[in-house]
């Protein structure tokens, strides 16, 4: 199959085109779309909670991620599963990703929500993301140890892996059992 989209289509005032043909590797989901991918057909409610300074320090030392986590970005399903939104730095731009954690504390899946860089988007590939599935807060979650690297996307891989580790530690400290 060979599909060559018309350039004129993008210029039409009435039409907005979506799709990899024109958007390239960039990913830009809404939070709702990410929630539907990870929890199809389920309603999620926002979970409000706070983190103490001691908890934040523990999260940082376990993951080496310095940016403070925004606690308003946590949702819970009726079954007790978690949906957490977070950002990490890619090479130049921020990557927004979502982590889904099962009620039993294992990782359900991760989804890339926003990825605006021109390189390194291989982290959005399902096979790379699938490495996280089933892991718990006690897993190492370190690049080149229990998470494989992707050549050419090292920084994105490393920062995402660190980000997931931090969220799993946070889940263990502050969300588990709620």
């Amino acid at each position: 199959m060979k599909w060559t989209p018309a350039l004129s289509l993008a210029l039409l005032p009435i039409a907005a085109i979506h799709g990899p043909a024109i958007a390239g590797p960039r990913i830009n989901l809404t939070v709702e779309q990410a929630q539907q991918r990870l929890f199809p057909g389920q309603a999620l409610t926002r979970h409000s909670f706070t983190l103490s300074d001691a908890q934040r320090a523990q999260m940082q030392s376990a993951s080496s991620v310095r940016e403070p986590f925004r606690t308003e970005r946590v949702w819970r399903s009726a079954k007790g599963d978690w949906f957490i939104l977070d950002d990490v730095v890619g090479k130049h731009e921020m990557i927004t990703y979502a982590l889904a954690i099962n009620a039993n504390g294992t990782i359900k899946a991760i989804e890339i929500v926003t990825y605006m860089e021109s390189y390194g988007y291989e982290v959005a590939e399902a096979s790379w993301r699938a490495q996280f599935t089933g892991k718990t807060a006690s897993a190492t979650l370190k690049l080149n140890q229990d998470i494989k690297n992707i050549s050419g996307a090292t920084l994105s891989c490393k920062h995402l892996t660190d980000g997931v580790k931090r969220l799993m530690v946070m889940h263990d400290l502050a969300l588990k059992g709620h």
Partner: peptide, 10 residues
């Protein structure tokens, strides 16, 4: 009708 592009074998 708006021209959307060209398609071969698809």
């Amino acid at each position: 009708l708006r021209f959307a592009g060209t398609l071969k074998d698809g």
